[in-house]
Design a protein around this nucleic acid. Structure first.
Length: 254
DNA sequence: ATGGCGCGCGCAGCGCGA
């Protein structure tokens, strides 16, 4: 099974890239973030014509997550239970024998801002929820834009980024709390090239210079991590005209 | 890297992302 996640930064704009990518890489499951579209405008017909079923939790202008799968996904949940949040950032569903959770973690804007504290509260609620989900679903995959670079090796210039949002200790502590639940960072199950990132600023030719961060992740429960045979970041879509600023991340399971 | 880009909204220029 091939699982993938991609922050597309507007599904409407990126739909041609998405269609090409589905045809080329043929994932079984793809989690999308920042669709930035209402459900009524979700391009379901195009996605179905590519051979995928889709669930979408969308809103106008901001956020929005979708779950594409070759087979129908069941038992959808579109929020962290008990966490009051108007923003569409979560979509969980069951695909075959696997529970899949698509996440768009808040950005946090800047350390100390209201949005930063919302991010920390959101992550605390996520940690508590996933602790329960791991008990319910031994085969659990949590994919998405976490907006956290877990370690300095996930940052092109740790000195410049030290203490900033996406890298701050409070955020990294919460990422480690997810790992402490037993979840494994699929990318780090394998040897990887230095300078592996999943996001590059549109400005300053950051992609060409590889000034990036690794903030998009696939976390796997122990039972799924045992079955994981590869994990890669696919930089090809980032090289296209009008790219998303994020690259897809792909994990392969036996 | 820190203004510099790209998105939505809506028709100018701002809020937001990371």
């Amino acid at each position: 099974m091939k699982l993938a996640t991609w922050n597309v930064n507007s599904l409407k704009v990126r739909l041609p890239h998405l269609m090409d990518w589905l045809a080329t890489r043929q994932p079984d499951v793809l989690c999308l973030q920042e669709t930035k579209t209402e459900d009524a405008n979700f391009p379901l017909a195009e996605i179905e014509s590519a051979g995928y079923r889709a669930l979408h939790a969308g809103q106008k202008t901001y956020n929005g997550v979708a779950l594409l799968a070759r087979e129908a996904a069941t038992d959808p949940v579109m929020a962290i239970p008990g966490f009051d949040d108007a923003q569409k950032r979560v979509l969980a569903a069951t695909v075959g024998d696997t529970r899949v959770i698509c996440l768009y973690v808040p950005n946090g804007q800047s350390v100390g801002s209201d949005k930063y504290y919302y991010k920390l509260d959101w992550l605390d609620a996520l940690i508590a929820w996933l602790a329960e989900e791991l008990k319910r679903y031994p085969r659990l995959a949590v994919l998405g834009d976490y907006n956290i670079a877990p370690e300095d090796r996930d940052v092109h210039d740790p000195g410049v980024w030290a203490g900033q949002v996406l890298v701050s200790e409070e955020e990294r502590t919460r990422f480690r709390a997810l790992l402490a639940l037993g979840l494994k960072d699929a990318f780090r199950l394998f040897d990887q090239p230095e300078g592996s990132y999943s996001w590059w600023d549109y400005r300053m030719a950051a992609f060409r210079r590889n000034l990036g961060l690794r903030i998009d992740h696939i976390l796997l429960s122990p039972a799924l991590a045992e079955r994981c045979t590869a994990c890669e970041i696919d930089t090809a879509p980032r090289k296209l005209e009008r790219p998303s600023d994020h690259a897809p991340v792909i994990a392969l399971l036996d």
